[in-house]
Design a protein around this nucleic acid. Structure first.
Lengths: 236, 236
DNA sequence: CGCCTATTTGAAGTTATTCAAGACACGTGG
DNA sequence: CCACGTGTCTTGAATAACTTCAAATAGGCG
């Protein structure tokens, strides 16, 4: 799959690069309409699309790059709730509910992102019930994931959750040709997903390395024994 | 507000007992249509409406009584995700996504509950965009709550979460004329909300009692100093 | 090279869990 | 009415898991 300029244009036109994209339920004319009303912007690592508590006037569709979506606790510690990559949409919750953003969206890998104004989202929800249903199903899916994660964070040990997160990162973002996780996260970010202290993540990664379950090269991580990692994550 | 038979009928007709009910966006005819197609059933404490992993053919609207909604972890430990009381609707996620239930719904206070078949939900989503939007907003709200709870469970101590849960229980279910929490939960259930061991909840409740922040009479709990409880829950 | 930040390690301390045992409450049957 | 059983609640003690603080090391970048 060779990405050309044209591909990128088509991709962004409806952000319909994945089968699960909610924009798949829109007609070609609808997509054209979005295309005329959206804007495309480039963002650099560290840029913030929207911050928790701020009002936003539309939602964002990721064309390329990666975002981290997080909530901020007291003393500023962030809890990463989700990531958004190519084809994912974010900010729609605040748009639909007309409420301030409940999370912060920050770029962790340089990104190209479409902005779709609220009015368009609302008009499509109103006139296209399939689109509305897709959007609902997307929300439901995220809700299920959130609930599962509540259970895991409440019941699993840090070690178990770390194993789970590593698997999720490989499944979601893939690995490069050397087998290392594609996504590049700091230890602090990793700890902000798992919900623990940075030092704990470091120690546990080190343990996993000693057990030959992963290998570490600088900040890059390679999963050597996914099966074992799965067992750690799900110790039935 | 004196509840009469007629009130109860009207209540259940559209389950529109709360301002936030999604059924408020339906017309009188639509409500009539639901009324003809729904069924009303009584349930006893301990009854299970649906179990995690099972397919369900409609959603449930609580007329009276209380449900606990939970996920089950390995070794069978349950994590309570939410409660449903008068006016709340549950099971709609599985209906909309046409997937097996991702939680179990169990009665913890004798309940009267309407069952609304999937087909009706879908037909209203299709033909009434306001209804669809209401449903989406409800899902979004639950998603926000779930994300907040992930943050809390990851970052707060058990003591802080217990304080938070006690406040939530009073705010959600109210207190009786003596000031005790209306909802009756076992210590085990309390621990399954907070996400900790039963013994930990017992010890921390005992601490709160010694600090005169709550009082305990058997399994009944009274919040004496809500302000202080809030401070514990939010130690900025 | 030098600075800054991220990572790693150690040691001490805290928090929470686990296991075991006993107390209490409630309902049932004698 | 009491004895009994069952389940919930409580307490104690030992242990395990995790955090915190401090300090050292390694990497990246101007």
């Amino acid at each position: 799959m060779n990405s050309t300029m044209e591909d990128n244009f088509l991709l962004c036109k409806g952000c319909s690069c994945t089968e699960s994209s909610i924009f798949n339920s829109l007609s070609s004319e609808d997509l054209d309409y979005i295309d005329k009303n959206k804007s495309i912007n480039s963002f650099k690592k560290g840029d913030v699309l929207y911050r928790e508590g701020n009002r936003i006037s539309g939602c964002y569709c990721v064309n390329s790059g990666i975002l981290k979506i997080y909530k901020t606790g007291f003393d500023g510690k962030e809890q990463i709730i989700a990531f958004a990559q190519k084809g994912d949409i974010t900010g729609y919750r605040s748009v639909l509910s007309n409420e301030p953003a409940c999370t912060t969206a920050e770029v962790i890998e340089d990104a190209s992102i479409c902005f779709i104004p609220s009015s368009i989202m609302f008009s499509f929800v109103k006139k296209n019930s399939d689109f509305a249903l897709s959007l609902m199903q997307l929300t439901c899916k995220e809700l299920n994931q959130a609930n599962s994660y509540i259970k895991d964070i409440a019941q699993k040990t840090v070690r178990e959750r770390l194993a789970e997160v590593l698997i999720m990162l490989e499944d979601t973002f893939g690995k490069d040709n050397e087998g290392f996780l594609t996504i590049s996260l700091t230890r602090a970010e990793l700890s902000n997903i798992v919900g623990t202290a940075t030092e704990s993540v470091i120690r546990l990664l080190s343990d996993l390395k000693n057990d030959k379950i992963i290998s570490i090269s600088g900040k890059r991580i390679k999963i050597l024994n996914k099966n074992e990692l799965n067992k750690i994550s799900n110790p039935y």
